[in-house]
Simulated scan of single mutants.
Amino acid sequence: MRRLSASSSPFFFLLLMLCCGWARASMGLAELPAAPGDGPVTVFYPSADAARLIKRARFTLDVAAQGAPAPGNGRLVVVSHGSGGAPWVHADIARSLVEAGFVVAMPEHKADNYKDDSNPGPDSWTIRPAEVSRAIDAVAQDPRFASLLKLDKVGMYGMSAGGHTALSLAGGRWSPAAFTRHCEANLVDDFQSCVGLITRLTGGPLDGIKKWAALLVIRHRFGDDATPREHTDPRIAAIVAGVPSSADFDMASLANPRVPLGLITAGQDRWLVPRFHSDRVLAACLPRCELIADMPTGGHGALLSPPPPGLSGLIGDMLNDTPGFDRPNVLQDVNAKTTAFFRTHLLP
Rank of each mutant, 00 (worst) to 15 (best):
T180A: 14
C183F: 12
A185Y: 08
A185T: 04
L187N: 10
V188F: 11
V188C: 09
V188S: 13
D189N: 15
D190H: 11
Q192M: 13
S193L: 13
S193M: 12
V195T: 11
G196H: 10
L197T: 13
L197Q: 12
I198C: 08
T199I: 06
L201I: 10
T202W: 09
G203C: 11
G204E: 13
P205T: 08
L206I: 08
I209D: 12
W212G: 03
A214Y: 02
A214V: 03
L215C: 08
L215H: 04
V217E: 10
I218K: 01
R219H: 14
R219E: 14
R219C: 10
H220P: 01
R221Q: 15
R221P: 04
D224N: 14
A226K: 12
A226Y: 09
R229Y: 05
R229I: 15
R229D: 03
E230N: 13
E230T: 12
T232M: 13
T232F: 14
P234D: 10
I236R: 05
I236H: 04
A237H: 03
A237D: 00
V240K: 01
A241Y: 10
A241R: 07
V243G: 00
S245V: 15
S245Y: 15
S246K: 05
S246F: 05
A247N: 13
A247F: 13
D248Y: 15
F249Y: 12
D250Q: 04
M251D: 10
S253D: 04
S253H: 04
L254R: 01
L254H: 01
R258V: 05
V259C: 08
P260V: 03
L263N: 00
L263A: 05
T265L: 12
A266C: 12
D269Y: 07
R270N: 14
W271G: 09
L272F: 11
L272Q: 12
P274S: 05
R275Y: 03
F276G: 07
F276Y: 15
H277L: 07
H277D: 08
H277C: 02
S278W: 05
R280Y: 00
V281Y: 03
V281C: 02
A284Y: 03
C285K: 00
C285Y: 01
C285P: 00
C285M: 06
P287E: 03
P287M: 02
P287Q: 01
P287G: 00
C289H: 08
E290R: 11
E290F: 03
I292C: 02
A293W: 07
D294T: 00
M295P: 01
M295C: 11
M295W: 09
P296N: 01
P296D: 04
T297A: 15
T297M: 15
H300N: 07
H300S: 09
H300L: 10
G301Y: 08
A302P: 08
S305K: 06
P307E: 05
P307G: 10
P308D: 13
P308T: 14
P308I: 10
P309G: 12
G310S: 12
L311D: 03
L311N: 09
G313I: 07
G313D: 11
G313M: 10
L314R: 06
I315A: 15
G316P: 05
D317N: 10
D317V: 06
M318S: 11
N320K: 09
D321V: 02
